[in-house]
């Protein structure tokens, strides 16, 4: 019995081991990968780069973890990233405050999330269908709002805010930590997690047990929209421009991949937020290491494709056995 418990505990740390393994592999195989130094009041090094570059995927994947835990899926996150980026860029133009930019972006994300939630919960459409449609529409709306051009956000308060380095850490990483803390608290402390995991595991039983399944699932889509909006702000401020046509393109794939590597089952019933962050980092380590080897980006694409299949195929039987 003790060994069974130990094994279960061990299994829940698998993503962490994978992360360490990936980092070691990258460090051994790649010159300069493991170097990390303090220069001009900030950290410099590939490991640090990995963390910063993974921010948009981490933010999106945190939101997506909630949706997937509830047994759903959200394909529109990439478009929301673009839409929110445009929103933030427009709001921060003409000397708008960073607050206004974040507010505009969040409003965009929450709106799309509410539409997704309404289509899935209210109209009863399959999540994949509903969010596929919003994915197409929202990118169009983003392009429309941007007026068909790339909206620059040079010198605005937003770039200054996200460029700030509290404690030598970039603000975007602080944002990830904050969102994680928020979701983790909601999940752990307010019983939302219990409702969510019950709804994803067995919606019929959850309904009979008095869980407001519809409202819970609706909330996950809204949260995912909000999280994607934050990712949109970060992505836009990184390149100092909001590109409605290509921002967040295929980001939904990376985010789903991060969730899968983190061990959140696609069939729902479990939300593993920390493991999702780990999954996003693993992906970014792979991409960065391959890039440092001078390999073309398409190799990373290939590796990702192979990882999706392996991770999901491996995750499946263990889950199946656990409930049998």
């Amino acid at each position: 019995m003790a060994s069974e418990r130990f094994r279960a505990k061990l299994a829940s740390y698998t993503p962490l081991f994978v992360l360490i393994g990936a980092w070691l592999l990258a460090a051994v195989a790649t010159p300069h990968f493991a170097e990390l130094e303090w220069r001009d009041g900030r950290l410099v090094g590939a490991t640090f780069d990995v963390c910063v570059r993974a921010v948009p995927v981490m933010l999106v994947a945190l939101g997506l973890t909630l949706v997937i835990a509830g047994g759903g899926i959200d394909l529109s996150v990439g478009s929301v990233v673009a839409f929110a980026g445009v929103g933030a860029a427009l709001a921060s133009g003409d000397g708008g405050s960073a607050f206004a930019a974040f507010g505009a972006a969040l409003a965009c994300g929450v709106l799309v999330g509410a539409v997704n939630g309404g289509l899935v919960v209210g109209l009863g459409l399959a999540p994949i269908v509903a969010t596929l449609a919003t994915m197409i529409v929202v990118r169009g709306v983003a392009q429309l709002c941007a007026g068909g051009v790339i909206v620059p956000i040079d010198r605005s308060a937003l770039v200054a805010t996200l460029g700030a380095k509290p404690l030598g850490l970039p603000a975007s990483l602080v944002l990830v930590a904050a969102l994680f803390a928020l979701f983790a608290t909601l999940k752990r402390r307010f019983g939302f997690g219990l409702y969510l995991e019950a709804s994803g595991d067995n919606p019929r039983a959850a309904r009979l047990a008095g869980v407001p399944v519809g409202r819970v699932l609706f909330a996950t889509y809204v949260a995912c929209g909000g999280a994607s909006a934050l990712a949109g702000v970060v992505a836009a401020s990184e390149i100092r421009a909001a590109d409605a046509a290509s921002a967040g393109l295929y980001l939904e794939l990376d985010a789903i991949l991060a969730v899968v590597i983190g061990g959140t089952p696609l069939s729902g019933g479990r939300a593993r937020l920390l493991a999702t962050l780990v999954g996003a980092l693993v992906l970014q380590i792979l991409a960065t290491a391959l890039l440092m080897h001078g390999l073309a980006p398409h190799v990373a694409l290939f590796v990702k494709g192979a990882v999706v299949l392996l991770a999901s195929a491996l995750a499946r039987p263990s889950w199946g056995r656990a409930i049998a």
């Binding site: 929202v138 709306v141 983003a142 392009q143 709002c145």
Partner: peptide, 11 residues
């Protein structure tokens, strides 16, 4: 712009 095509098709 190109946005309208997407909106129209998506809608």
């Amino acid at each position: 712009g190109a946005g309208w095509t997407r909106i129209a098709v998506g809608a």
